[in-house]
Design a protein around this nucleic acid. Structure first.
Lengths: 339, 339
DNA sequence: GATGCAGTCTAAAACGTTTTCGACGCAATC
DNA sequence: GATTGCGTCGAAAACGTTTTAGACTGCATC
């Protein structure tokens, strides 16, 4: 169907090997033949088959992406822009992306098996349950790996400067006069711990100790879980005047709970998110949140992974942190009088 | 790195060909050897290389996806859930998906070239400018093609029952007493025409002729364009009491324009969207819109494409329509008195 | 005139599969 | 006892590349 190198070589009156070398800039081919080959390749619309090439050289110029599908998959409000940026940057560098699942049709396979089966050159773990055995197997496998939002020992990771981000958010809340601030945290990952610590430290530095019952466990990107967590907080004898949600999308669930209690935002109770989902910034009231630079995160991950693949010797494993930015929206207001 | 069929055959004490046949259910291999091969394959964790297999049999079990990246790419509020559903269904049937771009690294290539280069078995055109020459080239190329939201003559397409959807929406608006209804339409595609026609017909059947200046051209998924279009409508001497936006996301821009004019929604002016973006249904005021069944659309497209690939003879080209559902939200209220 | 050496080119093996074809043994048939 | 046929297996070609090793010029060197 597509024109092969054999047809091209026939059209040039040269051997297959010479044509291949002409196309791949080998030194032992004369200028004229190189020009001839280039020209006829252009004329015939020749493209080397990625399959044959990959089989031979052992590289596919494909990057695997592990994207947990339980959590909305491609519709995930935070991870999908990250992935979009990752994809663009990868494509700019000559790599296509391939999704990694734990099955192919009916037959189950581990993530690692899928990667080896498709011969991807490296993997980016974007949105996933990091403690799953299959993920651990993949990480400790033979492939270059970059993770996002969770650091595995000895591997590269890209994340926001969450300490800076959460500190800024907490200070903003404090500056609005809040003293009773509750914190709903997401599932376990490096970033979760960093954010919580930054929150607690900032509160501590302001001379405020956060009571145990103001810290409640929830799940990222899960409005229902956030709603339940919020209910729990609202039922407290001394309820908080401000709640920091695990993320923007989950905050929607929390705010629903608050409205269901007949409370106004932010007059009666303030709410903050995390992520900076653009769509929510176009809605009213504008959510107070920390915007993560998804474009920078995705691009950095792609760059890192490509480096890891192309210069494995000179590239060192590291965690790269991307600045994030406080968005003082309309959902965190002054603390109610007498609270 | 990964275990090859040669190593497997050595471990079994059999020839490569016999092993291959055992794995691929050829009849001329005994039950015991088949069992032996299966067992040792399992034990060694053997997976055939997709590259070698694809090269040999001329199929990759990869589906190409053409997803215009100008328009938000993976973050697109309507197309990303469609794609997610497409992906899941494809994977269930043993296909991975691959994104098609018009370049690979620095060297430009047409969509079709990219498809042939990666040897995809078929293409789904999801979100794209259908009139572009490159897209046309791809459609008229040798590969099975399924489109979404635009029908090319002689090719399969999946879309919502837009006629039903827009008719229901228009009737709902009429039932709220509106007579001056404006319509902001998206860029050119089959669905755009169907929706406009359904709107006009329904209005006509209610005895209302829509004036020329109430029909304004805009761009899908583009809040800025919708904002401009809305400004235009608001400047009219006799301004509409209700505006149907091209889609939910664009509606956010339109609503911004309305708020900027000091008008209230829906007391002063009503607004409707199209798509039923879930996130917006969690915000206030809840947007009145038509929910498209993205899960059904994506899955249907994947099924259709796989059929086209696997049973090219018995599968016929058709347009499959998926029901959609009116969501009477809070942004379409009763028409103002005396309007 | 043999030798060496660039400069070009080609033959052929290899990557890991699938698939065609023929080989072999053995039972049944004439 | 030769032939046929069946059941099982393996050799080898093929898919479209890349790359190693070598072949062939022409030319300068000794």
């Amino acid at each position: 169907m597509a024109v092969t190198i054999k047809e091209l070589s026939a059209a040039c009156g040269l051997s297959v090997s010479t044509v291949s070398k002409a196309l791949n800039d080998y030194p032992d081919v004369s200028g004229e033949t190189r020009a001839l080959v280039r020209a006829t390749a252009e004329r015939l619309g020749y493209r080397p088959s990625a399959l044959a090439r990959g089989l031979k050289i052992g590289r596919t110029f494909n990057l695997g992406v592990l994207f947990d599908t339980d959590d909305g998959g491609l519709t995930h409000n935070y991870f999908s822009p990250v992935l979009e940026a990752f994809k663009s940057e990868a494509e700019r560098r000559g790599y296509d992306i391939a999704f990694i699942t734990h099955h192919l049709g009916s037959s189950p396979m581990t993530y690692l098996e899928h990667c080896l089966y498709r011969n991807v050159d490296g993997v980016c773990i974007v949105c996933s349950k990091f403690e799953e055995p299959e993920v651990v197997e993949l990480v400790s496998g033979p492939l270059p790996v970059v993770t996002i939002d969770h650091v595995f020992h000895g591997h590269s990771c890209v994340e926001s400067e969450n300490r800076q981000g959460m500190t800024a958010l907490t200070q903003h809340i404090l500056s609005m006069g809040h003293r009773r601030v509750a914190y709903i945290q997401g599932n376990s990952a490096s970033v979760t711990a960093v954010r919580l610590t930054s929150f607690l430290r900032t509160m501590h530095e302001a001379g405020i100790e956060v009571p145990e019952e103001y810290l409640v466990q929830s799940i990222y990107h899960n409005p229902a879980a956030a709603r339940a967590a919020t209910e729990q907080l609202l039922a407290l004898p001394e309820r908080p005047t401000c709640i920091i949600m695990s993320d923007d999308y989950a905050a929607l669930g929390g705010m629903e709970a608050i409205r269901a209690h007949g409370l106004r935002i932010p007059e009666d109770i303030s709410v903050a998110g995390y992520d900076g989902v653009p769509l929510l910034q176009m809605c009213r009231p504008r959510l107070t949140t920390v915007a993560q630079d998804t474009a920078a995160i995705g691009a950095a991950a792609a760059r890192k992974l490509v480096h890891l693949i192309e210069q494995p010797r000179t590239t060192f494993q590291e965690t790269v942190s991307v600045p994030c930015r406080l968005i003082p929206g309309e959902t965190v207001g002054p603390a109610p009088e007498g609270a």
